[in-house]
Design a protein around this nucleic acid. Structure first.
Lengths: 197, 197, 197, 197
DNA sequence: AATGAATGAGGATTCATTCAT
DNA sequence: GATGAATGAATCCTCATTCAT
């Protein structure tokens, strides 16, 4: 019997390497060779396990969303009050794991990919729906019907803060994204906001 | 008979073609040949005028930002009250011209480019600073010191709505980005929001 | 518990699978993996038994020629008259077994292989010599010295009909190869043909 | 103005090189690089002019058939009697140009290609139909209704002789294909052959 | 001013083959 | 006996870029 059970290990290594490389290059213009090398194997083996570069990307994307989803669920499970829930969702979005610059770079490029790739688009939409749904459920007990519009704003703000973070890097970045997002949350919960204009 | 003054015409055609192609492909993976063909010339001529693909992108980026800036200035020039100013800035960000799907796609990809390309990063930061500055100035007379934090939130929200728009497309998209953004503006102006938490 | 006598079974399965795959693809561009999979084993095992792809091909070739030879001998053994012999040879060449489209495809590709591969060339020459010899012996009693030239023509005609069969497929194929070949046989036996011109 | 009119020259060179390489390798497993190198250019340029390896093959095929067709027409134009026509067709099939070993190798491989490639199949069928038609027309004045069956036999024989020629090469090849084919022609014209049996 | 011609470099993908277990 | 693991080598194809005219 051959050396067995390598597949999940290899796949995980490739997924991790993919996100890392996207972070380094800032683009989906990463070569399979580089990914494979970083994952400690030949590019041929990468193809053996994933079939195509495209599917490597999709796996990386699914992994990123899964990790995010798991972190959110974990954080929510430790909350008691609605306010804690809303706060937890926001904090998780900017947690050390999810807000690593390479992960943020990957997110950005997944949005690019989604424009062409239906499956990628589907995944991002699922993420968005879940984020909105989580926020709405957390806020409904606090502000009732206004929760939907509030969730919309907070969700979009989070995405916007991600986007801005890609530019961040070296400069002395004064506004902490978490603070900005929690600031909005506080405001949403506070008073009789009406929608639109 | 060399046609005089061809240069600006050619350059403009290339810039427009570039944005269009980015919109079509959804990526910066557009070939110079395709851009040139769409602009009605050979790829060699495109290189003659711009030197490299990179510089074509930068020109397209500058053009996009310039158009946006001009629209904002134009809109602001027709306002009287602070509220009108703030509203005008938001509306312009989603104007027919700036919110064309190809332009939005281009924006997204400019963020990708900015991760690698210092000049691109600089341009995007200028845009962000200007947007925040415009918003702050508009809102200061209305809410005083809170204007800075408010501007931060609104600016980030606008970027987030752009990002979400790239996924939009076919589905029945219920929330109008303009409404969402104006909704936040209304809320910001309304009450005693405090920052962070 | 090592299964005994697996080797001949495995080899036979591989040979059969090879011919089948050549028939499917129409080319020698079949992968060892596909052959092995069809034969119900890993490609590594295929190499274990045959050493190389090349030798798999050679085995398939030998098998094809062997089957053909056996069928001819079998058919000849049931004949009484020279005419029956000649007829039997021709009919066997187009028998259900030998004229299966996959076998014909294999033949064609063996000719391709023979251009590079000395062993393959040798095998095909043996086949040709045997065919000519069989035909000559069958016809000599009937037309004497003319038998040699007649055999040449019939043998070449058979090959030509094989070649044409590879194109056959879907269209309403009017001329039955057997009829054409037997038509030539009849003509050869009939009259005072002289050679050349 | 650039160096102009290279295209037809390059294409012709590539087609010629393709046939040559097929002759050398004996297979369609020729690399575009080798073809291009033999044609004196980079493989990139070969792709520029033909788009794909496949289309290079198709061009080579069309060229081969065209040359053959032209030679036949030329030969026919210099004939007076039906017998001369039939003879001319046969001789042309084995002319110095068409029966070059590389061309014969190419033919063989075109048959292989035709099994997968519909366009290739179509071309070969056209060739076959034309050959049969030419032969039938030439022979009808001489043997009336029997011309069809005769043409079938002669056409198939010619293909068979091509096939055998691929094995030819070094050995002392006693039977001259032309003699064999003309021998059949003589026999066909001679007597009251009936079809089939 | 303008372009066809031309290429070097690079990347995804495939595959026969080997090896450790 | 049997196979998953693994890779080096090869090949098609694309593209930014240069150049002669």
């Amino acid at each position: 019997m051959p050396k067995l059970g390598m597949e999940p290990i290899r796949r995980a290594a490739l997924v991790e390497a993919t996100i890392h490389e996207i972070g380094v290059v800032g683009t989906l213009d990463v070569t399979v060779s580089r990914i494979a090398k970083r994952a400690g194997m030949s590019s041929a083996l990468a193809h053996h396990y994933f079939g195509s570069k495209d599917q490597i990307f999709m796996a990386a994307m699914r992994h990123t969303l899964t990790v995010y989803g798991a972190e959110v669920r974990g954080a929510l499970s430790m909350t008691k009050t609605p306010l804690e829930r809303a706060t937890a969702i926001i904090r998780t979005s900017f947690s050390a794991m999810n807000f690593r610059s390479e992960v943020v770079a990957a997110w950005l490029n997944f949005y690019v990919l989604a424009q062409t790739h239906p499956e990628a688009k589907k995944l991002l939409r699922i993420y968005q729906a879940r984020l909105r749904s989580n926020l709405t459920h957390a806020m409904r007990p606090l502000i009732g019907a206004r929760a939907d519009a509030s969730a919309d704003r907070i969700a979009a703000l989070i995405d916007g803060l991600y986007l801005r973070h890609t530019l961040g890097g070296t400069s002395p970045n004064p506004e902490d994204p978490v603070a900005v997002a929690l600031g909005l949350l506080a405001q949403e919960l506070e008073g009789g906001g009406r929608d639109a204009g």
